[in-house]
Amino acid sequence: MKGTTIVEKQPVQTHQKKATAGSGAKQKILAFASLIVLIVVFSLSSSNFFVFDNLVGIMLSTAVIGVLALGSTFVIITGGIDLSVGTVMTFSSVMAGVIINFWHVPLPLGVVGGILAGAICGLTSGLMVAKMKIPPFIATLAMMMITKGLSLVISGTKPIYFNDYPNFAKISMGKLIPGIPNAILIFLGLGVIASIILTKTLIGRYTFALGSNEEATRLSGVNTVRWKIVIYTMTGVFSGIAGILMASRLNSAQPALGSGYELDAIAAVVIGGTSLSGGAGSILGTVIGALIMSVLTNGLRILSVAPEWQTVIVGFVIILAVYADILRRRKR
């Protein structure tokens, strides 16, 4: 088995190089430039935008969606999709709430348990996609409904509070670095980890390979079923961590939350230059994409733009970002 992995590495690796190096640099510069333009425009329009507290606020509001987007990046690069990330996040937070509050398990174990719940959901989606050959859209749509319902069932439709465990709130809102809530550090740290996984490990290599040409990857001897399951499970882990971050910030697990978050996550991934048809993408792009989304919503709110128009504008920005990416690809 070991021998074959080494042999098969060669073609797959070149494949991946092409994909990342091609889409990488320029798209990142493009996305980064849009982010800077947005920040400059908002700073000029309102003196209340470029203020330390507000910038921290923007980063903090990026954390939950950002972590979901990090996880989504992997499945989207494989050419799949995960519609369940938002409700799996909620499910994980509810499970953490149940484990900590009702089973009275020590806090760190409860947190691990919540993340594990997310991993199990991801594993199940992965099995459905890879083993049962259910299209990812359908499999994760079903998982979305199942986790949404289960969160309500398990919690008895009531929020679960962490008031008896004051340390729980510190996961997100404690400040290891003065002035910066931990949630931001966790998000950025996970970004670095995700980036290393995507570019430096076998998981990352096969993520790109599956998205570029699944059949060729399978024929070159890669166990595509196993790697798909691994990737979906990993996305579940990210959702689980997002669930902990959210519950910690709200000091409660809110069973009715989370629907629609998957679309925000997908939007962040796509704005960051990851292709929905798979095979290309980057973590840095996703981080920038998530930041663009939250800078935009925050800036429009600071300017008191009517809320109905805010949504319209965000929609247009998604079109612009993705179209710019398509134009650039076509030129090549």
Binding site: S46, N54, G57, S61, V64, L250, Q254, R301
Partner: peptide, 14 residues
């Protein structure tokens, strides 16, 4: 709650 928190913060900044 999460969205309301972020938007209330933005209003306070503005």
């Amino acid at each position: 709650q999460l969205k309301s928190t972020d938007l209330a913060k933005a209003i306070m900044q503005a």
